[in-house]
Design a protein around this nucleic acid. Structure first.
Lengths: 231, 231
DNA sequence: GTAGAATTAAAACACACGTTTGAAACGGAT
DNA sequence: ATCCGTTTCAAACGTGTGTTTTAATTCTAC
């Protein structure tokens, strides 16, 4: 009753506080206070504050990306080798995330809002860790997008994927930030509506005509290390 | 030579360090060390670390939004009362920002990368301050967008504006974050190309068809039940 | 050239942080 | 009931933080 429970209480409290105040500004005393455990419990169970952060990301991120990959697996099984529709791919990737962000009770909401901010986080160890945790899912989705959009330069797809992550991040960070543009309070409680809005936007952006600057020639002299040669 | 210069040196050093490490993780000793001024100079010239941050945002943000408003003024003067094209409006708003982000020498690059992260910053005083500094420009651009897109619900325009800010933020945060999706190093040195990429994406997103869920009735259970059937 | 204000400099301050310690309380097995 | 490994607890530790202080220095004006 009191053993593994302490770990969970710490993780949940930390998640909520990190998302509210950020990593640096959140203290272990806040966390242990909110979790109603002893201060030393964090270092006992996790080793350090940094290790706590990693553990916190691990438990959610592993699950999240597993769900994404499974969704993609199902789509590809159905398609039987045919390229997927871009909207299906985006749905598999972003749908899971937005759904998780809509989960208020399980704490997924806190985590997703934290995650969006963390993606551009300065702290190096966090970014490296994220890159490692993401790598498998990212590789799978990149491959699917390349296949679904054979006539779009791969570099362009990556950039647009990057932009889409930004839009998603802001979408999830929600009304807290939106109130800057909206002035009046905005309803962000309906995650189905949010998802519909976001998805229209993303698909519009992904399928937008290529910028002229790219359709002409690769406007650069230096030979870029083109990692993949054959396709 | 040594009076106002100290202020500037502190501001520039702080900008670079905040963008590299974040607000909390950057210490006054780092700042004054980099600026080659005495530690006490920050509190003498600015009063506190918090006031330094505000001053830092003020000097750039005021200029940035002024440029944006002037660009919009020019467009509207030319149009003589006719609605602008959405792409023109986006160009006025995001073009200035990306240009500033491409300015490596003046320090604008550091600032813009910092700004993108700060928009979703947890710290309340920063967010409130940002909202105040942005309010005039945001109001003008909202009005222009409403006029340019009379058949799109205003709430939808606000959300899409919000998404666009997210995409821009990630675009500017640049290769540091992109390397997570790209694995191989990515060239983000060409701000013209970056801007062309971003703008295609944004216009595609802004002009995307409205989500079904919104075209029917305002918003209720009908539409696109993804995973949860809403009875 | 000198008084007076503005700025810089060095040192210390009070405090909060993450972490460590050593003992107390607990839990299950024998 | 006793033991032993695990977990909790209160207290303290060392360090680094933003800030303040007090004196030295530089600048400005007469």
């Amino acid at each position: 009753m009191a053993e593994i429970d302490t770990r969970l209480r710490i993780l949940d409290a930390a998640e909520a506080l990190f998302m509210e105040f950020g990593f640096e500004a959140t203290t272990l005393r806040q966390i242990t206070g909110k979790a109603q455990v002893n201060l030393a419990a964090v270092n006992y169970h996790f080793g350090s504050k940094e290790a706590l952060i990693q553990e916190l990301f691990k438990r959610r991120l592993a699950w999240l990306n597993e769900q994404r990959i499974q969704a993609l697996d199902r789509l590809e099984a159905e398609a039987k080798g045919a390229p997927l529709k871009p909207s299906q791919i985006l749905d598999a990737f972003f749908g899971v995330a937005v759904k998780m962000a809509g989960d208020r009770v399980g704490g997924g909401r806190n985590f997703m809002r934290l995650l969006g901010r963390t993606y551009t986080e300065p702290s190096e160890f966090v970014r490296n860790f994220m890159a490692a945790e993401y790598s498998e899912a990212i590789a799978r989705f990149k491959k699917a997008l390349f296949k679904a959009l054979p006539d779009v330069p791969r570099e362009e797809i990556l950039w647009r994927f990057h932009f889409m992550l930004g839009a998603m991040s802001y979408a999830i960070s929600g009304a807290d930030a939106l109130h800057i543009v909206a002035e009046a309070p905005v309803d962000d409680s309906d995650s189905d509506a949010l998802y519909a809005r976001l998805m229209s936007f993303l698909i519009g952006g992904l399928r937008a005509p290529l910028p002229e600057i790219l359709t002409k020639s690769t406007r650069n002299s230096a030979g870029k290390p083109r990692t993949r040669k054959a396709a």
